[in-house]
């Protein structure tokens, strides 16, 4: 298990002093983090601290003002999003963002847009095995799916890209606990099959159980990082994010 002590520059993903934000708001203030091959890393923090912004900056949706995003040693921060996808990064956006006008199957085809077509069926099969509900609703228009189903679809769509690195922005948002746990189990399977995962979560408890390492973000900065096991026992994390008081 990678505990983060290795050389960051050799990591699969490495954010180096990243600064980024929107028209007039600077959100990220020199973020540095890395994700090693095969890991599940989670990024936790309160609302509005810049977790989604971090993910969007990796995806090239938001352009960084300073710093670099290295993926397999290559600076991808200047690339447009669709090129970043081609490099092997899959993305499941916050709030699901499925194409509501497309069917489940069509959404998954968009997921596979850039990949070779010969093993399309195998990947579709894999997604349908991971999320049997999607198979049942294959031809249904995705705007009429339930929230949980849409979340499965968003993850499935990203998996259709066969990504080396999967970015997940709050996959448990708005889901019933049981469904959230369901999805997290699936993520574990996906990870075991070789996909590296960077996960943004508000459900800190669940996220720490699943992940190998964690970063805690506050007001655009990383304030704490380490192995998830240690984090679970960290007083500050306990008090602030797990709602367990110190005494």
């Amino acid at each position: 298990m990678g505990n983060g002590k290795g050389n960051s520059r050799e990591s699969l993903l490495f954010l180096e002093n990243l600064e980024s934000g929107y028209a007039k708001v600077n959100v990220l203030q020199s973020i540095s983090l890395h994700v090693n091959q095969g890991e599940i890393v989670t990024l936790v923090g309160a609302n509005g601290v810049g977790k989604s912004t971090t993910i969007k900056t990796i995806m090239g949706i938001v352009k960084p003002q300073k710093g670099r995003v290295l993926f397999k040693g290559e600076d991808i921060s200047i690339l447009p999003p669709y090129k970043i996808v081609e490099k092997g990064i899959g993305y499941s956006p916050e709030g699901r963002d499925v194409f509501g006008n497309l069917s489940v199957y069509e959404n998954l085809r968009i997921g596979a847009y850039i990949t070779p077509k010969n093993d399309f069926d195998t990947r579709l099969e894999r997604v349908f095995t991971l999320f049997p509900r999607l198979a049942e609703r294959r031809e249904q228009e995705s705007s009429s799916l339930s929230g949980g189903e849409q979340q499965m679809l968003a993850i499935g769509r990203a998996l259709m890209q066969n990504p080396e690195l999967l970015l997940l922005d709050e996959p448990s948002l708005g889901l019933a606990p049981i469904i959230a746990e369901d999805i997290f189990e699936t993520l574990e399977d996906v990870n075991k099959e070789g996909t590296t995962v960077l996960l943004v979560e508000q459900n800190v408890n669940l996220a720490l159980q699943l992940s190998d390492r964690a970063y805690v973000m506050e007001k655009g900065k990383i304030v704490l990082s380490g192995a998830s096991k240690e984090m679970e026992n960290n007083d500050y994390v306990k008090e602030t994010y797990l709602g367990i008081s110190r005494n």
Binding site: Y82, V85, D97, F99, N101, L102
Partner: peptide, 14 residues
């Protein structure tokens, strides 16, 4: 159809 629904997301799907 994807682009017409949401251009940003479509780009983020490659």
């Amino acid at each position: 159809r994807g682009v017409s629904y949401n251009k940003t997301t479509a780009e983020a799907m490659g």
